[in-house]
């Protein structure tokens, strides 16, 4: 048997650290935060337990550990596509890395993820087959564009990277991508069902 020279021959030792210490319980708590974030768009939640290599935030690391595995192609965009992150994702989640078009999950800053129309938006008969974007943000704050829709009693505000792309995404409903916004250990959700308006 010959060894494929493309195969990474070994992981950097740093890649072995920074995963969940107690996966069943930590991923359960992390998922509850993700569920609340996605079910109540615009609310900001704290998560913990992951220590991914730069440039990934704690929250993006937690989202990857909680949701990604060998069955979910992951796209690393821009600076996130570095050896340290590739090794860390491979060791802790085992997610196959892929181009944007085939990704179920994608991680990067909003600028790095552009153009967002390259991601899967699901099929008309299976709208669930759409990408989830894990967007690295400099900060998350309850200010900025106004959000309405399912999960929101009246209106909330969330500091989004832009509004035009999310409005276009909402217009595709029930198709469209879903978004998790991460900054440090904070995370917020923006499902495709949310209406976004500039103030």
């Amino acid at each position: 048997m010959t060894i494929n020279p493309q195969t990474p021959m070994g992981l950097a030792p740093e890649a072995l650290f920074g995963g969940f210490a107690e996966a069943p319980v930590q991923s359960a708590r992390a998922f509850r935060a993700l569920l609340e974030a996605m079910a109540r768009p615009g609310t900001i939640w704290q998560v913990e337990g992951a220590a991914p290599p730069a440039p990934l935030s704690i929250a993006a690391g937690v989202a990857i550990l909680t949701l990604c595995d060998g069955t979910t192609p992951l796209h690393l965009a821009g600076a996130a596509d570095c050896l340290a992150v590739r090794d860390w994702v491979t060791f802790h989640a085992g997610a196959p890395l892929c181009a944007a078009q085939g990704a179920m999950f994608a991680v990067g800053t909003w600028a790095e993820l552009m153009p967002v129309d390259q991601f899967r938006i699901g099929d008309p008969d299976y709208p669930d087959r759409a990408a989830t974007l894990i967007v690295e943000m400099p900060a998350l704050a309850p200010t900025g564009p106004r959000l309405t829709g399912p999960g929101i009693r009246e209106t909330v505000h969330l500091s989004l990277p832009e509004t035009a792309a999310f409005r276009a995404n909402r217009a595709l409903f029930p198709l469209g991508f879903d978004t998790l916004l991460c900054s440090g250990d904070q995370i917020a959700g923006l499902p495709r069902s949310t209406h976004v308006e500039d103030l």
């Binding site: 991923s27 996605m38 079910a39 949701l67 979910t72 709208p127 879903d178 499902p191 069902s193």
Partner: peptide, 14 residues
Amino acid sequence: KRMIRRAILKGVAV
């Protein structure tokens, strides 16, 4: 659980 959790999040989104 990861598989179910992904399905739940997509269900919430649609």
